[in-house]
Every structure is written in C-alpha cells, then in structure tokens.
Design a protein around this nucleic acid. Structure first.
Lengths: 208, 208
DNA sequence: GTAAACCTGTACCTTTTGTTACAGGTCAGA
DNA sequence: TCTGACCTGTAACAAAAGGTACAGGTTTAC
C-alpha cells in the first residue's frame, strides 16, 4: 500500500478530488533519525503528515527544554497546521526520533482544502481539538503537580504508549522531557526504586 | 446597532444565509457579574460569543487555580468551541467578571457552519490558532520562568490591556491568576516596590 | 583495547517557593 | 459607629527544586 493510501485510509478520505489534490501536491519523503522537521524561528512552508516513524515536538529556552508532544503515525504537528493558516515563523522545534516517512503538503493548500473538502475539514479541526486538549492537560499538570509526580506520570504514559513496562531513556533525556535537570531525575528515580515502584538499569527503567 | 450586527461586523460575516442562521438559532443573553458560563465537568450545550463584558477562563485543582485566558468582545471561549465538535464535558471554568452580553449558539450548528460558510470557517480556525498560541506561550512561561518574572509579566500585560498603569487587583487575586499563594505575591511585590518598579496601594498596584 | 563520550549515584549546598502564624489596616453594610 | 469580611506585611520555618562537584560505570568508535 502506498503512503498516500495509508493516509487516505487513516483519515477516512473518500473524496476523489481531494485524493487527487493530495497526490498532486504532496511529496513523500523519508527522513533519517534526528532530522529537524520544523525549527524554531524559521518559516514553515510545508505541512508534514507523519506516515511512519516518530517526531518529537518541543520548546526551548537558553538552557532548558520541555516536551510538547510526539507526533505519531498518522498525525500532524498541529503547530505547523496553525502556521499554515497564516504565514508565520515556528515557535517550536520538531525532530525525528527515528527514521520517519512524511507526506509534505505546501501550506497554502491546507486552509483552502479545509473549506473545500469535508474530510479535510474534519481532519484539521480534529487535530486542533486534540492538540489543544493535550496541551491543556500538560499545562494543568505543570501548574499543579510536583516533578516527582510528573516524572512518574511520564514514565507510566510512556510505558503505556509503547506497550512495555521498561522505558529505555537516560535520566538526562527524561530531564529534558520534563524541563528539569538530570540530578533531580536521578534523585527521584532512586527514591522510587527504594519504594519498590521502579527498578533502575543502565539507560532503562522498569516499572514494577 | 443590535448585538447580531456587532457580531457580523466584527467577524466580517457577509453571507446572508449565515446571518439568518445565526439570528434564527442564536440567543442574546445578558448575564450579571460572577455568573458561570461554563463549569468544569458539566456538558457544554452552547457556544458563547462575548459581545460585551469580560469572561475569565481558568482551571482548578483542589486548592489552587490558574488563569487560562480572558474572553473579551468579540471572541469566544475556544474550549467551548472545541467541545462543540464532539459532545463532551468541560475541563475548564468560565465566569463573567462584569456584566456580560453573549450570543449563545447551540453547539450542533457550529461545526456544520464551518464547512458551509467561509467566514465562519475562518472565524473558528482563527480562534483555534490564536488560543493555541496563547496557551503555548503560557506554557513556556510557566515552564521556564520563576514567579517573580511571571508576576511582573502579568502586571505589565494587564496594564497594557487595560491601557492604564495601575492594576486594581488584590494580592490574593493575583496569586490565583498565577497559581501561587497570597504570601508569595506579597513578598515579591514588596521587593519590586523596594526596587522602585511598582508602588503599592490598597487593592491597587501602580507600575512606575 | 583504549579514549572519548555519555551515563549513574550521591553528598552538600543554595535558591525558590510554599506554610504557618499573627498583627494590624481598610471597607461596606447593618 | 461597629462588625465581619477581606486586605496587607512580615517573620520564621519547611519543603521542593536546582546547582556543584566528584567518583566511577558503560558504550561506541576508532
């Protein structure tokens, strides 16, 4: 099955004209691990739809960074979506975490289609809503929870998403996801290990 | 000018059919100060468009709360917008801060129109984008800045929005906007007063 | 097989933020 | 004018989070 067909199926796209439009204007591209898809302060020219692989989206300061979300198949980075509706610079970074295949669509079509094709309208709207609610949850989490809880939450949701009880991340990586520092993560994890909640290995954390 | 016409002007709505639809299905309502427009965990049945007045939107925990944003004329609470696309319970609270006139639109029309009418599509999309970016800024702010800076930022943007150098809020109210406690706000403000950045009065802070 | 790069653990200290407790000020309404 | 509700200031303390420093483990690439 072609990448395009995968996309059409996943988004429940039935309109033949939309299919044609996407196939005519979209570009299939496979990018290696650790490539930037979107870079802070740069203009967004394409909407990237992830077909396979994984993309990490985050914000950064001088010395810290914080995860916003991951883009999995078949999703799009809602921020490039938003940029498509008014030409603007990116306020986030997005980088592949593994080899990733995307379909790139020039931004100017994205809003045009949202009025022209019902399924595209549904897709963009739905993406916005989901992303907004995700961000809202993150915001609430950040505002009200201490890092020990945020860390455990992160580990659990990571485990759930990957359908495995072990998390293959270094303390440093975890710190960056949560916007804190390595030492803090090490300390908390050690606490959790002493409480019998996790088991620590090299670059791996096992949830018990 | 009627409330409806105010709305049509502000949103640049030209389609006569859309105007008719809005007038037929919308309900103009003036609600007193401190009324709930949306309540956490309750179903959202209407999309409220603020015509005049001001609505505060926030999230809360057991003992804390944090401001999300204010809805001013002519805007809508993007969360009720998102709720309209899939029947769901509210995850936020919204309350009038002064007497407020709204136009309520039953949720089922909102998504329908976004495909039917170009200007409505533009309006909903635009609302989403703006709100998303606002929230993203808040998130970054919360993640990377200490409360003293967040407080000062808040005061300055408040002053700017109200076009006045004095902020008529108690320390307690400020604490709730920022998700912290009254004592912390008092201490920081006193620091700023000693540094000559603000002047403190009863229920009023003047930016110098 | 070895160096360089990265990972983990931990002790100690500092800064930031929150808590408790209390004293006194301001204001609106009875 | 008195009262109760709310506001402000502040000290002393506690908890949370971050920073510094260092010791030693693991992995990868040459």
């Amino acid at each position: 099955m072609t990448e395009f067909n995968l996309l059409f199926n996943a988004l429940a796209i039935t309109e033949e004209h939309l299919k044609e439009d996407i196939q005519r204007t979209g570009v299939v591209q496979t990018v290696p691990k650790n490539s930037f898809i979107v870079e802070q302060h740069k203009y967004i020219k394409w909407l990237a739809l992830v077909i396979s692989g994984k993309v990490r989206v985050w914000q950064e300061n001088e010395d810290r960074q914080i995860l916003l979300y991951y883009v999995h198949p078949i999703q799009t980075c809602v921020l490039s979506l938003s940029a498509t509706f008014r030409d603007c610079k990116s306020i986030i970074n997005a980088k592949t975490e593994e080899e990733t295949t995307i379909i790139k669509i020039p931004v100017r079509y994205v809003s045009e289609w949202s009025f022209k094709y019902k399924s595209w309208n549904r897709f963009t709207t739905h993406s916005f809503i989901m992303s907004y609610e995700d961000l809202l949850h993150s915001y609430k989490n950040l505002a009200f929870n201490k890092i020990d809880k945020r860390l455990l939450d992160y580990l659990r949701s990571f485990a759930q998403k990957n359908n495995s009880q072990s998390i293959d991340l270094s303390h440093n990586q975890l710190a960056k996801e949560l916007g804190t520092t390595r030492e803090v993560v090490s300390k908390i994890l050690k606490q959790y290990e002493l409480s019998g909640i996790v088991k620590l290995k090299f670059k791996q954390i096992e949830l018990l």
